[in-house]
């Protein structure tokens, strides 16, 4: 791949970077990344990856833009209310960087479709808002041998970890979804919009670092932060031999849909 002059100029700040350079930018331009959920997390991930020149971005979301989304889902604008999120997002990506190829999936991931959707991508980003989807994405990625970035936010808190095949997975730490009602959803508990941006941007940085192969990913580490007091820390963990999906005697060998937690206070759309 030879960069043209416009590309050299567009990506010059990446090329200058010691750990990216021409070689790293070429890897980004060749990358294929799937973003599941085009909401609070998916929005910043998609924006930064588009700006970075990612080759192919897949977007999965079955919802339409709701007025209450705009407080944090920065890829959607006021005139987009009522439009499918994946189309709204696709337009913005094209406006930022016409080089990026966008593939949209106007659906929710489920046991029946997820394996087919993720199979063509180098890396998966979990930007969903419910535990059922998070565990499904984990299991699908473990069984399909795909690296992914997990992200979760609530109120002022965020957490993220990165899975790569052979290392600890989300279930090694969190064996199963919490009981229904034990953990509130965003729409019940609220979320500081900027927290979604903070965590999504961290996930975007993980994707880029994965693609260029530099630095230590958040593998076998859980990054948690409390944006109310602005404390960050990482917690180390190891692969769990008793993990139900990646352990020595896995009990999960095929994908199954769990019942998603229902957002009680939801009026329209999803949080």
């Amino acid at each position: 791949m030879n960069l043209n002059d416009a590309q050299i100029e567009r990506y010059s700040r990446h090329i200058i970077l010691g750990n990216v350079g021409v070689e790293g930018q070429e890897k980004i331009l060749a990358g294929k990344v799937l973003i599941i959920g085009t909401g609070g997390l998916g929005a910043p991930v998609a924006l930064y990856l588009a700006a970075a020149g990612l080759g192919t971005i897949g977007l999965v979301d079955g919802d339409v833009v709701d007025l209450s989304n705009l407080q944090r889902q920065v890829i959607h604008f006021t005139p987009d209310v009522g439009r499918p999120k994946v189309l709204s997002a696709k337009d913005k990506i094209a406006a930022i960087n016409p080089d990026v190829r966008v593939i949209t999936y106007e659906t929710r991931v489920a046991a029946a479709n997820i394996a087919g959707i993720i199979k063509d991508y180098d890396f998966i980003v979990d930007g969903t808002d419910n535990f059922a989807a998070k565990f499904l994405i984990n299991d699908a990625c473990v069984l399909g041998g795909k690296p992914f970035s997990h992200g979760g936010i609530l109120r002022f808190d965020g957490q993220t970890l990165t899975y790569v095949p052979g290392q600890a997975c989300y279930r090694c730490v969190f064996t199963a979804p919490p009981p229904k009602g034990a953990v509130p959803t965003c729409s019940q508990a609220g979320i500081l919009g900027a927290v979604a941006g903070m965590l999504g941007t961290i996930q975007a940085a993980e994707v880029l670092r994965f693609l260029i192969g530099k630095g230590e990913l958040l593998v076998n580490r859980l990054l948690v932060f409390d944006a109310l007091n602005m404390n960050f820390r990482t917690v180390k963990f190891a692969r769990n031999p008793a993990c139900p999906v990646c352990g020595e005697r896995p009990s999960i060998t095929t994908l199954v849909d769990a019942e998603p937690a229902v957002c009680d206070l939801k009026s329209r759309g999803r949080g």
Partner: peptide, 13 residues
């Protein structure tokens, strides 16, 4: 600057 450096890196690559 910094395009001279960017282009140098492109050449070195």
């Amino acid at each position: 600057c910094p395009f001279n450096f960017v282009k140098t890196k492109v050449e070195l690559a």
